[in-house]
């Protein structure tokens, strides 16, 4: 195992821990906006985890998955924020 592979594994595991830490804010956040902020940042972290998985497993198609996941996260955030703003998805 090279130094780079070890660094990537360490980075991926600490990112997973940080993702669980920010899940607390999605659970406990006093307002809906706090929850949206938390889910947005969780999406970013999971995108990074998928990209790091591409390096760990050596399967390059995970990079495409990460690109699509980033797009879906953006759409989800915009939809929920609009729903909070207006009470409907018009």
């Amino acid at each position: 195992m090279t130094v780079v592979n070890m660094a990537v594994v360490v980075a991926a595991s600490s990112l997973a821990l940080l993702t669980f830490a920010s899940l607390y804010r999605a659970y406990a956040g006093p307002t809906a906006a706090d929850r949206v902020v938390s889910i947005n940042v969780i999406t970013t972290k999971v995108t990074m985890l998928i990209v790091l998985l591409a390096v760990i497993t050596g399967q390059n198609m995970f990079v495409d998955v990460a690109l699509i996941y980033a797009m879906m996260g953006f759409i989800a955030t915009v939809c929920v924020a609009k729903y909070i703003d207006r009470g409907e998805l018009g």
Binding site: T31, V36, A70
Partner: peptide, 20 residues
């Protein structure tokens, strides 16, 4: 991915801030 995230995240933050 970098370009996409740097375009979309300010947009998302703007919309969330307005809603909040």
């Amino acid at each position: 991915i970098v370009v996409f995230v740097w375009l979309t995240n300010p947009t998302a933050a703007h919309i969330i801030a307005k809603a909040a």
